[in-house]
Simulated scan of single mutants.
Amino acid sequence: MLSHHRDTADDLVQATCLRALERAAQFSPGTRLDHWLFSILHSIWLNEVRSRRVREGQGFVEAAEALIFDGAATTETHILAMQVMDHVHALPEAQRSVVFLCYVEGLSYREVADVLDIPIGTVMSRLAAARARIAEATAPRLPTFSRGGAQ
Score class of each variant (00 low, 15 high):
A73P: 01
E76P: 02
A25G: 14
W45I: 01
L18C: 05
S97I: 12
L116V: 06
S125N: 04
A24D: 09
G30I: 07
I120K: 08
E22V: 07
A66V: 05
V112G: 00
R19V: 09
Q26S: 09
M85G: 02
C17T: 08
D70Q: 07
A137Q: 04
M85L: 13
L18F: 06
F38Q: 00
R32V: 14
V104M: 05
I118E: 00
V54E: 15
H78C: 12
L80N: 00
H78Q: 11
R23A: 11
T138E: 03
A113H: 01
A81Y: 07
E136F: 11
Q58D: 10
H89A: 01
C102L: 15
V115G: 01
A63E: 05
R96V: 09
L41D: 00
D86F: 08
S43L: 10
Q83C: 11
V88N: 00
A137H: 04
L127T: 06
T16F: 06
R53Y: 06
L67W: 04
T138C: 09
G106H: 14
A90K: 05
S108T: 10
T77G: 08
F69T: 15
S39V: 10
T74D: 13
F27S: 01
A15W: 03
I40W: 00
A72M: 10
A20T: 09
M85S: 05
L46W: 06
C102G: 05
A64G: 11
F27R: 06
T144H: 05
P119I: 08
D11T: 08
L127E: 07
V49I: 14
V99W: 07
L80P: 00
E62P: 08
H35I: 15
E56H: 15
G57K: 02
L41N: 02
S146M: 06
A64M: 12
L127D: 05
A113M: 01
R32N: 10
S108P: 02
E65G: 09
H78Y: 07
I118P: 02
R23V: 08
G106D: 15
S97Q: 11
L46V: 13
A24P: 02
D117I: 13
M124H: 03
G121V: 02
D34I: 05
L33K: 09
D10I: 14
P140K: 12
R96A: 07
E105G: 02
D34Y: 04
E76S: 10
V123E: 03
D70M: 04
C102T: 13
A72V: 08
A128V: 00
E111D: 15
F38K: 00
W45H: 03
E136R: 15
L91E: 03
A139Q: 11
I44P: 03
A25F: 14
D11K: 13
L46I: 14
D86E: 14
T74V: 09
R23Q: 14
L33I: 14
Y103M: 09
P92Y: 10
A64S: 13
G59M: 03
A129V: 05
Y103L: 13
R133P: 01
H78K: 14
M82K: 11
H87R: 13
A113N: 02
L116T: 05
Y103P: 02
R50H: 11
E76Y: 13
S39Y: 03
V112Q: 01
A139G: 04
A66T: 08
R110S: 14
G71M: 04
A90Q: 10
R23G: 12
